[in-house]
Simulated assay, not measured.
Amino acid sequence: MINRRDALRASGLATFGALALGAVDAGLTPAEATASGQLRGWTPLPDPAAGGVTSPPFPKNLTAEERRNLKTFDELDFTVFSSADWARLDESHAKHVRVHWPDGHYTDGIQKHIDDLAALFVWAPDTNIQVHPLRVAKGNLTAVTGVMRGTFSAPMPDGKGGYIEPTGRQYAINMATVGLWNRRGTMDEEFLFWDNQTFYSQIGL
């Protein structure tokens, strides 16, 4: 049997894709395969970061636990994160949560995660996530894509005691989050994926 946690560490985005495909195969979307191999009832998404994409309904046939976890994740991004309401982060994250970042490093503990998230709002105070183009859940796993937007409008600490002057440029990047949830309805582990090169290029760094 595949250890899902180890698989996530080993294959990153490939695992996210595998989870999404597994959800499709399990009948969690309305798309149906025809005899010719084409999909019926399915239209490819445009680039979500370009705009014009909304959050679809939750997949069909979710368990109560799976639906709860996706609803909690929506509330996390659309309200808690976008409003920088860090006092509510424990509604979605366990105190001991381990968070894996796109550059490969990870952190332990909810307070460290709060500090890291708050750092985004220092130089981009309008940072927000308002759309989840793809949302799937299977057991204690969720896989959700989103679009994170903001403006590099304030000085960015450079980690050396100085600051990088704001460029005033806006960013909109596609991201994906895979979460491992516990029975209390919070994430024990979270994997964040986005393209850092695109991110820094968009803000002019």
Rank of each mutant, 00 (worst) to 15 (best):
I114D: 02
F152M: 14
D74R: 12
T79W: 06
A33F: 11
F199V: 02
M148A: 09
P157S: 06
F152R: 07
S201E: 14
Q197R: 11
S82W: 01
P30D: 14
Q197F: 12
S36C: 01
G109D: 07
N128R: 15
E165S: 12
A18G: 12
Q202M: 13
F58M: 11
A14G: 13
Q170V: 02
F73W: 12
A31C: 03
A31K: 09
N61K: 14
P102G: 08
L134T: 13
P59R: 06
F199D: 04
E32Y: 01
T177D: 15
T34W: 00
V80R: 12
R183C: 00
L21Y: 12
F121M: 05
G109Q: 09
L13T: 10
L13C: 04
V80H: 14
V178S: 05
A143N: 06
F193T: 02
R135F: 00
G139K: 13
W194M: 07
T54H: 10
A172N: 00
S201V: 02
G168F: 04
K112Y: 03
L21A: 14
A172T: 00
L45R: 08
P125I: 06
A20G: 03
S201R: 15
S83W: 03
W194H: 13
P44G: 03
D195S: 03
D126W: 10
L76D: 04
W101R: 10
T107D: 15
V178H: 08
T151S: 10
G109K: 12
R98Q: 13
V97Y: 01
V178G: 03
H132E: 14
I173Y: 01
K160R: 15
F78N: 10
T15E: 15
T29N: 11
P56K: 11
G17E: 15
F152Y: 10
G185Y: 09
G204E: 11
W101E: 11
K138A: 10
V136L: 12
E65W: 07
N69P: 01
Y200F: 15
L70M: 07
G51R: 04
Y171R: 01
L141Q: 11
L192R: 06
T127L: 08
M148K: 05
E65G: 05
